[in-house]
Each structure stands twice: as C-alpha cells, then as structure tokens.
C-alpha cells in the first residue's frame, strides 16, 4: 500500500506535466512539417498528397501578387521598424527626464497596444479617407486645394499601413526602452556627469550603449510583427487599391482560401516562415553569444 502510494506520487507529476508540454511541442512541429509538406504537393482546393516538387515555389515567386507583396513588405517593414523604434526611443528619453504626469503620458502612449488591429485599421481608414477624413476637414476649413489621399493612391497606400502600425506599436517599444533606461546603473550616469559629459553625450555614449540588448530585442519583436501583419491591412485598405498595399500574409490567405490553391498558399506560408527565420537566427545567435559572454564574465 505504502509503496503503491509512493509510486503514484512519483508518477502523478509526470502525468500532469507531459500532456501540455507534448501537445504544445507537437502542435508546433506537426503543423509546420505538414504545411511544408503540402507546399510540395499538387494540393488545390483540398489536400492532395501527390508530389509536385518545387513547382509551387517557382509559381509563387513568379507571380505578380507575391512580388508586389514582398516589395511592399520591404518598404513597410523598414519604415515601420525604423519609425516605431525612433518614436519609441524618443518618447522613452523624454519621459525619462523626470517629468510631471509621467503616468498619464505613459498610459496615452501605450493604450494602442490594447486596441485590436481591426479597430486600428477601421479608424485610421476613416481618417485617411479623402471624402470623410483629414482631407475633408481641411477642405471644410477653407483650404480646398489640400490633398491627402494616400489611401487611394497606388504609390502611397502602403504608407497608410505604416502610420497605423507605428501608432499601434511604438508605445510598446517606448515601454521596453523606458524599462531599459531605468535599469541603467545610476552611478554610471553620476560618473559621466562628474567627467563633465552633457545630457546628449551621457545618452549617446553611456546610457544607450548599455541598453544595446534591448535594442536588439525590440528590433526582433517589431520585425517579426511586421512580417506577420495581416488584420491591419484587411481593415485599413484590404490590400488595395488593387494590390498596392497587399502583404505576403494576405497573399497566403488569398491563395489558400479564396483561390483554392492550397499547395501554392502553403509554399507562400513556408517562404513567410523563411523570412521570419532570417530575422530570428541572427537573434538566437546573438543571445547565445551574449549568454556565453555573460557566463565568461561570472
């Protein structure tokens, strides 16, 4: 009886730990492998497991949709990441100046992360809409030659996504930067002050270099977020006008569910994952290097 109980006590934790661990591992592995496999098959409307080689990939790479979407991703990704980081850092530095009403400002800058992309896209869509948004307001004020019609301009539509995404994500960058600034050893700043460094020099030469790892973390988070962007575009421009603001994530969905081209959609999804990996592998390497250096220092 006693032995049985002891054995039970030893087994029970395993029964509880392993199912969720295994399910969450299995789901990641099985789903990625399955989609990757389908990307090499002739699947159209339904999965069809006959081998097709790399045909889906070549077709996708040659398709106009994919080329436009990927070009857009480059423009959008670069603008969004740079702007969101710049704005986030600027706000963090401003808030770090021992200001009054810090909590109020922080709350205002951060609340967008609580708002869904659907809502973000919808509301920014109104503001960008020339017949009802900012352009209309300015016209009503008397400046009738004013033009602000990015959302229907093929060359500018992608930048409306950038503005909405920066509005949504820069507060998050600010919060992380601010935490980083606050974690800098106060003695370091004091030492720099005694050395006669001004505020600008203290930031650029002492404070910012010590929060380098936070830069990398923010960069990776924003980049992977940019690559995955989907709902924001659906709600704001639906990829239009035409294909002017479409992104790879929309193309995948379009092929998989609207055109019934499962194999090609899967190939596009795998390439999307590939571009994420391009972001993540250097990051993983950086973290490993950092850990090793940290260990060496201790």
């Amino acid at each position: 009886m006693m032995a049985w109980r002891q054995r039970w006590d030893r087994i029970l934790p395993h029964l509880v730990i392993w199912p969720p661990l295994l399910v969450s591992c299995a789901y990641v592995l099985v789903f990625s492998v399955w989609t990757t496999w389908v990307s090499f098959t002739r699947s159209t409307l339904l999965p069809d497991y006959s081998w097709a080689g790399v045909r889906n990939y070549t077709a996708m790479l040659a398709s106009r949709n994919w080329q436009i979407a990927f070009t857009n991703l480059f423009i959008y990704g670069a603008c969004f990441v740079v702007l969101a980081m710049a704005v986030g850092l600027l706000l963090a530095v401003l808030i770090d100046q021992r200001i009054r009403g810090e909590n109020l400002f922080r709350t205002i800058f951060l609340y967008p992360i609580a708002v869904s992309f659907v809502v973000t896209g919808t509301v920014w869509g109104w503001l960008f809409n020339p017949s009802i948004g900012v352009q209309k307001l300015v016209h009503d004020l008397g400046w009738t030659s004013f033009r602000f019609d990015w959302v229907i301009d093929r060359n500018m539509a992608i930048y409306t996504i950038v503005v909405a995404a920066v509005w949504h994500g820069s507060g998050f960058a600010m919060a992380l930067f601010l935490a980083g600034l606050r974690s800098v050893d106060a003695d370091l700043v004091k030492a720099a002050q005694i050395d006669g460094a001004g505020a600008w020099r203290i930031y650029t030469r002492v404070v910012l270099p010590t929060i380098g790892p936070i830069f990398v973390a923010v960069l990776v988070m924003l980049l992977q977020f940019a690559i995955k962007t989907y709902d924001l575009v659906v709600a704001l421009t639906a990829g239009g006008p035409g294909l002017a603001s479409t992104l790879p994530a929309l193309v995948v969905y379009d092929f998989m569910f609207q055109r019934g081209e499962l194999g090609r959609g899967a190939a596009a999804a795998v390439m999307l994952l590939g571009s994420l990996t391009v972001v993540l592998i250097p990051y993983a390497g950086f973290r490993a290097w950092q850990n090793r250096r940290g260990a060496a220092r201790v």
Partner: peptide, 20 residues
C-alpha cells in the same frame, strides 16, 4: 522542449491555418 514551445510564439498564423 522549451525551445520548440518558444518557436510557437514566432510561427506565423498562415502556417497553421490549414492544419487547424
């Protein structure tokens, strides 16, 4: 195990749509 689970954070939704 932890590494694989963390990968799930980065996996794009589009990879998982059809399996789901």
């Amino acid at each position: 195990v932890f590494g694989i689970i963390t990968l799930g954070v980065f996996l794009p939704e589009q990879m998982k749509l059809v399996p789901w």
